[in-house]
Amino acid sequence: MAAHVVDGANGFVGSHLIGALVARSDSVIALARASEEVCRRKVADALTTLHLDPALVEKVQFKTFALAEPDLGLPVAEVFTAPCTYWHCAAFITFFPRREEELHAVNALGSVNVERTFARHSVPGSRLVHISTAYQNGTAPGRTPENWPEWGHPSEFRNDYEHSKRMAEVSLSRSELVQKGELLVARLGVMVGHSGTGRALSDLGIYDFLRVIALFARRNPGERVRFVCHPRAALHLTPIDGTVDRLLALAGGSFDRPVRHVVNRATVPVPDLFAAINAHLPIELVAASAAEVEAEPFSRFEAIVNMRCKYTSPYLRHEYDLECHDDAAPPPVTPRILDLLVSWYVREGLPA
């Protein structure tokens, strides 16, 4: 029975990861700022999503932690009693402006505190997995390699969240854990629900976009809305079940390549995503070029919708080329899976 410590236990990735670990009879200590009651509910829901017994949550030990406190505010003698895999999933995610200080404190400085606490107190044979994002590449053109990044100015990123995740990786690249082969950075794509059912316990990413689009579609059914998109715009949608499977496989292997993209080689073209949304909501989303919008400016309705989607729409204006390898790539999102993801959220996930 392997031992694991997972922080961010109430988050989307952390809760599903914990569910998968206890289902294979591993020992799990779950860490979060949220209450134990909230975390138990999140993990039980994640187990249900993964078609596992939600009662398995009773096997998880929950402890409160704080990224800014010395030793994470943990009883380290209780947490690091045996060789373990520590999963750093906790993060602050927001695309709103004027939150850069909080994002830096949680995502960059908090990650450094996790690494230092782990390095001081973990038992020999332990390893650290840092969950990052493939979009730490910012707006840099060309292929994003699986290697340690360099410092980047905030202006090189779509938002302060991306910049804070880049800064975390830059700091981790200097850790002695890298030289020891005890640190892995797993960069995830756009997280979505279960590939078999579409069920999702998240309101981020495409779900935030869907929620906004549904609001306007219900108020003004039948309207057309154009978004400026790169001609080859596509998203690395990664269902949670396949992502967890790949993370567990990577964590059980060698860390000789310490930076990995856990994304699909096959991306989802933005026009395909729009077509799936159009099939389930009374609206017509259209991928347009900047030249087309310049020739025919947005209508007032289009301008309002674009403004409300201003934190998501920048991701439609770039082509992403991420280095990835088969051992880290979750199964692709097929048209059937894409339809499941959109239809489940429209049917079950949207506010009444």
Score class of each variant (00 low, 15 high):
E182W: 01
P221V: 00
L285K: 07
S175A: 07
R260K: 14
S155D: 15
S164F: 06
L183Y: 08
A214T: 11
G253A: 15
L177D: 00
A276F: 03
V212R: 12
T238G: 11
A275W: 04
G253M: 12
G242F: 01
V286T: 09
L250Y: 09
L183E: 01
L273N: 06
S175H: 05
D203F: 04
V185D: 14
S171K: 12
P269R: 10
L250C: 13
L172Y: 11
P231L: 06
D160S: 15
L172W: 10
F227M: 06
L215F: 09
A168F: 04
D203Q: 13
F274Y: 03
G253P: 03
G198D: 05
L177C: 09
G205R: 12
R226M: 02
V178R: 15
I213K: 11
L184E: 14
V212P: 00
D241P: 01
R257H: 12
T243L: 02
G253Y: 12
T197K: 12
D272K: 03
E169I: 09
A217Y: 01
G252V: 01
R232N: 15
S195N: 09
A234F: 01
M191V: 13
F216L: 04
R232I: 06
R158V: 06
D245P: 00
V185L: 10
A251C: 05
R246P: 02
S173C: 04
R257G: 08
N159G: 07
V228I: 15
L204F: 10
M167Y: 09
T197P: 00
D241A: 13
L215K: 13
R224A: 13
R265D: 06
I240P: 00
A287G: 06
E169A: 14
A200H: 07
F157K: 14
K180F: 03
R232E: 15
P269S: 07
F227T: 05
Y161V: 06
A200V: 15
S202R: 11
L281H: 11
A249G: 10
H163T: 08
A287V: 09
I277D: 03
V190L: 11
I283C: 01
V225S: 05
S173D: 10
P269F: 01
R211D: 03
G242C: 03
G198V: 10
L247K: 13
N278W: 00
S254Y: 07
V185P: 00
L237T: 11
V244A: 06
S202Y: 04
V286F: 05
A217G: 04
G222M: 01
A186D: 11
S202T: 15
A233T: 09
H153A: 11
G222E: 02
L237K: 08
V170H: 14
F255M: 12
R226Q: 07
P231M: 06
V185A: 14
L201P: 00
L248T: 14
G205L: 07
R219G: 02
G205D: 03
A200I: 14
G181Y: 03
A233R: 12
L188G: 13
T197G: 07
A275R: 04
R166T: 08
R260N: 13
E162S: 09
D241M: 07
L248G: 07
Q179E: 03
Y207N: 03
S254C: 08
C229D: 02
H280I: 08
R265M: 03
G242S: 06
L247W: 08
A275F: 00
E284M: 10
